[in-house]
Structure formats: structure tokens, C-alpha cells
């Protein structure tokens, strides 16, 4: 059997545990922030923390940091498309 394998990247256990601890700390932060009334900033704080957690998962657990350029660029393009979708829909909603 022929296998075309580009030497896969190995992320150390230490690094993975570090990421997990960071994710758990961010979860604790998002829960405590939700207990303080910041008005409309509560939603923004929650989304900011969720996006940070998402970035950590994508970069390290999903190995995107070590991926080839095609996957990295296409991921950014996807986020860009989502941003356009959200942007135009909210443009519509806020001027109704």
C-alpha cells in the first residue's frame, strides 16, 4: 500500500494540556462576566471570549496553525463569507 504522507506534525501533550487549561479558564471567565450587568456589552464580551476559545481550538486542536496554505486561506475566506452574511443581514435589520 502506497501512502502519500507529508510528515505529520506532532503537538506535544504539554502544549495540548496548556490549551485545555486556557480553555477552561476562559470558560470560568465567561461565566463570571455573565454575572455582572454590563448592559449590551455582556453579549459582546461573551462573543469575544467564545471567539478566543474557538481560535485556540482551531489553531491547536485542529492543527490549523501547522496546516498547508490552501486550508489556511480557505478557512479565512469562509470566515470572511460569514462576516459578509452577518454584516448585510444586520445592516438590513438595524434600518427597518
Amino acid at each position: 500500500m502506497k501512502i502519500t504522507n507529508e510528515h505529520p506534525h506532532v503537538i506535544s501533550y504539554k502544549k495540548l494540556i496548556g490549551i485545555l487549561i486556557a480553555l477552561l479558564i476562559l470558560t470560568a471567565i465567561t461565566i463570571s462576566v455573565s454575572m455582572v450587568d454590563l448592559g449590551k456589552f455582556n453579549v459582546w464580551a461573551a462573543l469575544l471570549i467564545a471567539s478566543t476559545k474557538c481560535t485556540l481550538v482551531v489553531l491547536f486542536f485542529m492543527h490549523l496553525k501547522y496546516e498547508n496554505r490552501v486550508i489556511r486561506i480557505s478557512f479565512v475566506v469562509t470566515l470572511f463569507c460569514v462576516a459578509i452574511l452577518i454584516g448585510f443581514i444586520f445592516w438590513d435589520i438595524s434600518f427597518r
Binding site: T27, T30, I31, S34, M35, D37, N42, V43, A46, L47, I49, A50, K53, C54, V57, V58, F61, M62
Partner: peptide, 19 residues
């Protein structure tokens, strides 16, 4: 599996933590 985790990362604050 990681994507399913990411989706939950957004569901959690939007539904459970909204004040």
C-alpha cells in the same frame, strides 16, 4: 468532533449566559 465542540462554545454563552 472539534467543530462540534466549537459550535457548543458559541451555544453556551448565547443561551445559558444571556442576562
Amino acid at each position: 468532533w472539534h467543530l462540534v465542540d466549537i459550535i457548543w462554545i458559541f451555544i453556551f454563552p448565547l443561551f445559558y449566559l444571556i442576562i
